[in-house]
Design a binder for these strands. Sequence first.
DNA 1: CGTAGACCCTGCGCGC
DNA 2: TGCGCGCAGGGTCTAC
Length: 280
Amino acid sequence: MPELPEVEVLRRSLEPRLVGRRIAGVTVATPALREPLDRATLEERLLGREVTALRRRSKYLLIDLVGGPSEPPPSTLVVHLGMSGRLTVVPDDEPPARHEHFSCRLAGGGRLRLVDPRRFGVVLALPTAGLDRDRHFAFLGVEPFAASFDGDHLRRAARGRRGPVKPFLMDARVVVGVGNIYATEALWRAAIHPRRSVGRIGAARWDRLAVAVREVLADAIAQGGTTLADFTDGEGNAGYFQVSLAAYDREGEPCRRCGAPLRRFVQAGRSTYFCPACQR
DNA sequence: CGTAGACCCTGCGCGC
DNA sequence: TGCGCGCAGGGTCTAC
């Protein structure tokens, strides 16, 4: 469910509600997420600490923490929402929700909780120092809003590789944060066929694609993300970029550029939508 | 080596 | 109304 824009929207909404707050309690209700939750480590690295900042790397939300009884080194709560995760702050008297697998009680009131029906999410606590050498982050590629992400980056990354451009664009070693929706949308914006081989894309097309990726992500962030079923920000608000989707989930509907009916097919196990007339 | 497919899990919408 | 099927925004592992 959440790609980069949704995690960024979540980060921005939670930041003012969490920075400066202290974690007074940790509850692990369901350890069996994509990776088992380690209650002892979570307690050790979270309890009694104060939130200093919220960051994002790829589709991971990073909640930085300092302090605690024994002056421990800074730690970071890492949360990945998987497909169906929702992270929100709710009042203390809010009863535990179905699929509320993990929560932190905040000193002074409120509870940060993860609700995740499909349990593809990840929650872990790591030392802040050396975070990017952790296995979850060590092999991640460039952030799409970094200065180094451009057509040239894509062109060089594609060198020596084969296969269609859409799975390439979704490969986090190439560029992070671009999932099925935004890969579909970026290719539509750049008028590139999702099946086009990466070996048959010239510099001009790579440039166009890099611009399209950045634009579609920025537009989605500005509109609060895409809510297909269950994405919300940290206060429970839905996004509304779904009304701006030009290709995703629009099989049979007219292309907004040329009017031809959009088509759907399955690529690398995921639904892909494209305009057979103007995406080449 | 890189790429394709299965798999993890629950919920929902659809067709019968 | 009820049931079974297919599908869903992610990532990782195995098999070629």
